[in-house]
Amino acid sequence: MGHETHVEVRTQAQYEYDKAHSRAHMRKQVVNFAIMIFLTFIAFAAVLADFSPTFIIPIILLLAGIQVVLQLYAFMHLEDRSTHMVGVIEFFIWSAAFIAFTFFVAFTTIIWWGNY
């Protein structure tokens, strides 16, 4: 296990390139954050604006979905393809999301006796 640790000294040029790259990446993260705040704002505003619920509910669910994808891929670094076993991780996360979705469908459709 110990032998799997690789520490290599980067050249000055590589180091500076990485540093600049990581700074640019951080700027992108701030933009992502701004988008999330914006989406949240729209969701709250849409509800307060008093449109018909059948119109708003799909929209705010969609906004939530977009925010979650942003969190997963930007903030939680799933877009970084050099993450160890990132494909397997994605498979598990999306399986979980799919299973969660079936729960929602089941519990909103077939849980009640009387309503249908």
């Binding site: 991780i89 598990f92 996360i93 399986s95 979980a96 999301a97 299973i99 969660a100 729960f103 929602f104 089941a106 519990f107 909103t108 849980i111 009640w112």
Partner: peptide, 19 residues
């Protein structure tokens, strides 16, 4: 992997809440 599992835990409580 744990987070995937936790997602499903939250999903079951969420679904119960919705119902």
């Amino acid at each position: 992997i744990f987070l995937a599992s936790d997602t499903v835990l939250f999903a079951s409580v969420f679904a119960t809440y919705i119902a």
